[in-house]
Amino acid sequence: MAETTTSSDPAAAEISAAAGPLVLRRRRRYSLLTRQDKLILALMVGIPLAFDLALIWGPTLASVVFSFTNWQGIGAITAENFVGLKNYATLLGSYIFFRPAFLHNLIWLGFLAFVATPIGMFFAVLLDREVRGTRIYQSIFYLPVVLPLVVVGFIWELQYGATNGFINNAFGLVKSHHVIDWLGDASVNLLAAVVAASWRHIGYVMVLYLAGLKSVDPTLREAAKVDGANERQTFFRVVFPVMAPINVIIVVITTIESLRAFDIAYIINHGKNGLELLSTLIVNNSISEASLVGFGSAIAVVLLLVSLVPIVTFLVNVNRGERA
């Protein structure tokens, strides 16, 4: 803001002070900001803060409160609704869907982290080499990220259908009566779902990483070349370390995407029969006809606590980087 810099100039302060009362003038001498600046700043901070409190912290805290109740979504919450840690005890003790869901989230994370993310990064490196038609490739790989969920679900159902799906027909499994039940067989449907999720994740990672690669100082590569480094060495010894901030972001995004994985499993079968995920359990319990809001909230709180680990790690990392 231009005003901010000029107001430190005594002459300018004099001019602006002429308009205001004497008391204010004295105070303003110590401030770098005009009243208008302060108002604008207050609005710029206040409005997002209000939204943040109302839309993020409010519901989060509400979930935490709900998690100690047996509220079923109808009427007011009274003292009788508070059941202490019962929901958590049930969840961690006898709720048979919790362990599989947690395990499935971990498998999801493993697959995205060790298969999908590296592929996305690899695509980014390839496309960074100014191959012909790079924009077309970028668009193609990014397309799944922007496609509406309904379309994504439809596309994968066409692939995975037991008797009318592409995969089983292309490999002649339908003819030989040995169909693989990609969506219904609990031993393969998680893999099918995570492959579909990866299809989107790869494009996402690719675009992020490509943006990072573009910002790497080209002289670094030239220097590496002059020193006799080959392509592989240049990438792993020079480019990759320089990209550290982007790498951290990608790790965090991959982790969070895996923890909140929901849509594809939910579209396939509402997250049952091998596709249980923490997120689908939350929805099936609290936002469904079941209306076990209290119990669903307890699962949500557990998911929140688990998600805090990578987020805190990320923030600590970023702050440390800024301080260094």
């Binding site: 049952k272 029969n273 469904s288 006809e289 079941a290």
Partner: peptide, 15 residues
């Protein structure tokens, strides 16, 4: 409905 749903009887019958 909290018994008959996806993470309930539907799952048990699929099992």
């Amino acid at each position: 409905p909290d018994f008959s749903g996806a993470n309930g009887m539907q799952s048990f019958l699929l099992t």
